[in-house]
Amino acid sequence: MAQAQQSSDFLLRRLHTLAGVIPVGLFLLEHLFTNAMATTPNGAVSYNNAVDTIQHIPLLHFIEFFFIFLPLIYHGVYGLYVAFTSGYNAGQYSWTRNVLFVIQRITGIITFVFIIYHLWTTRFSGKAPTFEMVHQLVSNPAYFWFMIVGVVAATFHFSNGLWSFCVHWGITVGARAQRVTAYVTMIVFIALAGIGVDALIAFTHAA
């Protein structure tokens, strides 16, 4: 019986890292890409067209549930458990990776709270997902800054998570490979955070 418990821990942990990158991470990229439509000339129309295309994907609710909600809930809830069982000693050992280890867990918790509120005010608000709806939301400065914090936290968590995913799955083994990947993922973070913030600013301008 103990053996069964043992192997499930390993499997749950690997599924956690996999879920964070494959469905959740890919969805984040797709989401940021759609938002970025708002930054184009005639942004409101481009954004509404992009949203309309997504709305007409066949089996949308099925895809949304099995490829977004389920992995997202799993990654989030199991992630809270991981953050709770981790120890925190960056005060005593302030090496970069240990600090990033702490930030990864903090941004994870911020992102968790952010996503719940974000879904509550958009996907489950009962309002049609249009440029106008988002514009109304981000016109409130408090909401706008909440979104900025959420986008930066989520993109950091994703980018730094890519780094640990590569270690967890034994892709980057050597110290040099891990160092190079760390630089690459921080560039990914800056790029994604920039794209996300840029889109948020675009939404503040009236259509």
Binding site: A2, Q6, D9, F10, R14, S86, Y93, R97, F101, S164
Partner: peptide
């Protein structure tokens, strides 16, 4: 290593290699 307290518990804080 896949069992209880195994390799999956590592969170890549990498203090080990420093000390």
């Amino acid at each position: 290593l896949m069992g209880e307290g195994g390799i999956h518990e590592c969170g890549n804080a990498q203090n080990c290699v420093e000390v």
